[in-house]
Amino acid sequence: MKTPLMMIINPAAGKGGFKRSLPDALRLLSDAGYAVSLYFTECRGHATELATQYAGAFPYLLVLGGDGTLAEAIAGLMPLAERPKVGYIPIGTANDVARTIGLPKNDILAGAQHFIDGTPHEFDEGRRDGGYFNYVAAFGAFTEVSYATPQEAKKQLGEAAYLLGAVKSLSTLKSRHVTVEYDDGCIEGEFLYGSMSNSYSVAGLIDLPRDEIKLGDGLHELVLVKKLPNAAAMANLAAKVLSHDLSSEYIILKHTKKARFIFDEPESWTFDGENGGAHSDISFENCPQAIALIY
């Protein structure tokens, strides 16, 4: 008897080229012993609804789409008493999760084979006020790049769209006064950027040190970038970040289970690369080993 597999597909992810290879991928999964049930998303948030409603009946869930689709699907699993093991075929632009766990990007056949050959690993989920986030919640510099970049530009330019957006955002960088409470204390100051993450890569631009991060250790990474003294320092830091170098006196990295961010006025946030609205007081918490992620 074949193993039941729920597959959530975002038909709008990436350039849509994966559709040509979908029948071959389904045949590959079937030959490997899976009975695949397909569910297509129709709008933002639909993957959450599908996962909550149907995934409890399956031992495995395979998500085909971008990081946003994966985040939605995992959020939909959180209310379930028994959660399926989760596989991911990344079809999108930034693909931070794929960078982090070493998945083939924008290649549905290779992704299906990777799922078949992969093994489950413990993965922490993040809880935020009003919901969940999968790998990053962030404010400030570069965070608006993902959701502000036009969808057509993402399709045509891929990662270049994000890089162009990041360069354009340099002229609008501003600091904000923030108080951050975390496990080991409190930090207060003027910051250009802040985040809680469980990933090696953020927005396809920022790489965190892999030797300091474990994805299932019950801790999130708190990253803060301090206000810079002048334009030259800002340009130097931007160049470092874009070249994946975080060795700077202006960058703070902490490991924590919880964090609370308090602003003088509402601040715009992104959750897993999507617009998360403005918040003046917001808290985050690690949900340890919430998901078994296959890779």
Rank of each mutant, 00 (worst) to 15 (best):
C186S: 12
D124H: 03
T149M: 11
K257W: 01
G158K: 09
I187M: 12
H114N: 11
G189V: 05
S169V: 00
V223N: 10
G56M: 06
I8Q: 15
A81L: 05
A137K: 00
A290C: 07
L29W: 02
L170A: 10
H279F: 12
E72F: 03
S201L: 15
G126I: 08
T100M: 05
T69M: 01
L5Q: 03
D129N: 14
G66R: 00
T119E: 15
R27T: 13
P23S: 13
E72W: 02
T256F: 03
N134I: 06
N106P: 00
H244K: 15
K257H: 12
S268Y: 07
F123M: 14
C186D: 01
I74D: 05
E181L: 05
G87N: 02
R260Q: 07
G165L: 13
E221F: 00
G216H: 04
P104W: 02
A47K: 07
Y200P: 00
G140V: 09
G204Y: 11
A153H: 09
Y54V: 13
P79Q: 09
V97I: 15
A81M: 01
Y193K: 02
K2V: 04
Y88V: 07
S21W: 10
T119C: 10
I101P: 00
H244F: 04
A73R: 07
L22P: 02
L80P: 11
P266W: 06
L237P: 03
T119M: 12
L215I: 10
D207Q: 11
I291V: 15
L70M: 15
P4L: 06
C186A: 02
F261A: 13
K154E: 10
L253D: 01
M6V: 12
A259S: 03
G16S: 08
Y132M: 04
L219M: 13
G118R: 03
D245T: 07
L28Y: 01
E188G: 06
K174T: 13
E122C: 07
E188D: 10
E159N: 08
G102N: 06
K19E: 14
G277S: 02
G216R: 05
N134T: 08
R260C: 14
G185Q: 04
T48L: 14
P104N: 04
L62G: 14
K258F: 14
F284P: 05
A166M: 05
D124W: 04
